[in-house]
């Protein structure tokens, strides 16, 4: 958002989350909301990441542990299915990988610059020693 002059913004430094009216926020998924330029939803913290999660849906059981424990609202679950990661908002903490219960894990951390397709192709097999 461009820096504005003193006469160009709302009084009291008040911010509005949405453009115009929103009737039922809790019943409206993010993709259907008209976020204003002042919602951090439109911003990105992707440049915070040194490592990033890669999602392998072949092993995912849609348990939603990653969804509930993601601090950054970056696990995209729709209709009870995990469908991907919001890479604009993911800070690369790695919690999703730690809480993933599948064997092998459905989420793994890789260097930020790693190529996703290469990593998916080289995904580890089931670890027999794990419980």
């Amino acid at each position: 958002m461009a820096n504005k002059g003193w006469d160009e913004f709302e009084i009291g430094a008040m911010l509005r989350t949405f453009e115009g009216k929103i009737d039922d926020i809790a019943g409206t998924l993010q993709e259907n909301r008209a976020y204003s330029q002042n919602s951090s939803f439109v911003a990105s913290v992707a440049d915070w990441r040194i490592i990033k999660p890669v999602f392998n849906k072949d092993f995912c059981i849609d348990c939603q542990f990653c969804w509930v424990y993601c601090p950054d609202i970056s696990i995209i679950s729709r209709d009870k299915k995990m469908i991907g990661i919001d890479m604009d908002h993911c800070k690369g903490c790695g919690i999703c990988v730690e809480v993933c219960p599948t064997n092998p894990k459905s989420l793994m951390m890789f260097p930020e610059k790693a190529d996703e397709e290469t990593e998916l192709a080289a995904w580890p097999a089931k670890n027999e020693e794990k419980k």
Binding site: L29, S77, D79, D86, C90, G92, I95
Partner: peptide, 24 residues
């Protein structure tokens, strides 16, 4: 948890909390 995961969050990402912060 599957049912819970259909919630439409009312708290947004790209906040400035540390990676891995339990607050959010």
């Amino acid at each position: 948890l599957k049912e819970f995961s259909t919630s439409a969050d009312r708290f947004e990402g790209a906040n400035l909390l540390c990676p891995g912060c339990a607050h959010s």
